[in-house]
Design a protein around this nucleic acid. Structure first.
Lengths: 245, 245
DNA sequence: TGGGCTGAGGGTATTCAGTACCCTCAGCCC
DNA sequence: GGGCTGAGGGTACTGAATACCCTCAGCCCA
């Protein structure tokens, strides 16, 4: 259920993938899960990986970064994805799709994501780091929306609030999935959460509180029924009105 | 323009106010502004303040904390403020008022807030710290809303998104004020930004999309919805209308 | 073929934040 | 007096992060 043109392109950006990076990540997680994040030193990691200490900081600017090895890539992908937008794209749909890039990154490695989730819940420093990563995504979305909403009054406010909403909805569904152990497909839950935001902030509702239906729009369905009508009849009525949906 | 009962009580919580804490903050900011945050060591600070190194960490758990000396107090105030809510309060208005507590903390020391803003813009580590502080506020608001929305379907999602929206709107107005040098009163701008959110998420519009269901007469129910609204949401809308009315 | 360039990786020393442990001393209650 | 507590001070240690320099393989090119 992708919403905009050019949805979720294959942004794997096929890099040469240095094997040393992965070796470091593997060694780090093995130790983090065994004795805990703070009980593991950089020396422990590089010793297990069989490389020099200096090499660790060649690949990861800090100890926290090894826990989120693909976020920088994902952030770059998101930036690129948004930059490739057409002016005709629905901005809200576009940022929702951009958020789905993050979801996909998590969903691609369910076991890894769940393990990391366990770490971030326990280690305050990692939670802080994660929050700052999320903030970068939010800023990226907000910046895109800020440009797209430049002509609106309160465009900047709208952009910021909408970006925050999209991120919050995405994270809500994502964390539900992580808490459940990464079982199944989180896509649908995220879609639901995003549509929750999307329908509130859809571009045609051009002001707060202005979300009420203009009856002349072809997009609007009006159903009139008696209060005493049983629910199943109401549902059938609405269903037939909505037709294919 | 306070929105709920018991609005913004005097939460100065008159602590004994140890003078040493303030001396450390003053010394720290003097040095931070003169040579920069990262160029200043803890030893520099305690030397200027004329106290022992050990005493610094007695008052501030980390170097970053000295830059945000009153956020912990403010967070506690916010938690207390929300805990003191009545069940009859409008939850949305209540979290908006809670956000205003943060604004007030900034507005009480304009010069200090602006100086700190300059620091956080320049030092990535401080920005990260600030983001994590903001996240704590957001979590506090979301937790309150989660309880208040417990009976709603999607209550948790709604709580998270709403909390994120309120925080984003608040920060938007706050940063505008800080960028402008802390001149004037930021209250009105924050009120505007919050009302932007408030009108969108007001408790009476109890579903996204503004799908409005209401009783035209005693016996007739009119449902107006968008064609794109998913069926489950329509059903819920109708159910809730038929339910309590 | 030798020379020099580059870039990945390694090693060591240093800085500095943060912690643990112990000391002093003032006030204060028995 | 003696003992207790709590604020403040000092010192040593750990460990992340940085700076600087070394090795070595590959490679271009004169």
């Amino acid at each position: 259920m992708s919403e905009a043109r050019d949805p979720l392109p294959d942004m794997t950006s096929a890099q040469p993938k240095p094997p040393m990076r992965e070796a470091l990540v593997d060694a780090a997680f093995e130790l983090f899960l065994a004795r805990g994040y703070e009980q593991t030193t950089i020396d422990d990691i590089v010793t297990l990986a069989g490389v020099g200490r200096r090499s660790f900081f060649r690949y990861f600017p800090s100890k926290e970064d090894v826990v989120f090895p693909d976020h920088e890539r994902c952030l770059a992908d998101m930036t690129e994805f948004l930059a490739a937008s057409a002016d005709t794209d629905d901005p809200v749909a576009r940022v929702c799709d951009a958020a789905r890039l993050v979801l996909r990154m998590y969903a691609e490695k369910p076991a890894f994501s769940v393990q990391r989730y366990g770490l971030t819940r326990q280690v305050p420093g990692l939670r802080t780091y994660e929050v700052s990563v999320v903030w970068k995504y939010e800023r990226t979305l907000a910046e895109y929306l800020r440009v797209r909403f430049a002509d609106r009054p309160d465009g900047k406010l709208r952009a910021n609030v909408l970006a925050a909403s999209v991120v919050a909805a995405h994270n809500h569904a994502l964390r539900d999935w992580l808490r459940a152990g990464g079982e199944g497909d989180p896509t649908e839950a995220v879609d639901q959460a995003l549509s929750f935001v999307r329908q509130t902030w859809s571009p045609d509702s051009d002001g707060p509180g202005g979300g009420h239906a203009g009856a002349e729009s072809e997009d609007v369905v009006v159903v009139i029924t008696k209060r005493s009508t049983p629910m199943w009849r109401v549902v059938r009525e609405v269903e037939s009105s909505l037709g294919e949906n």
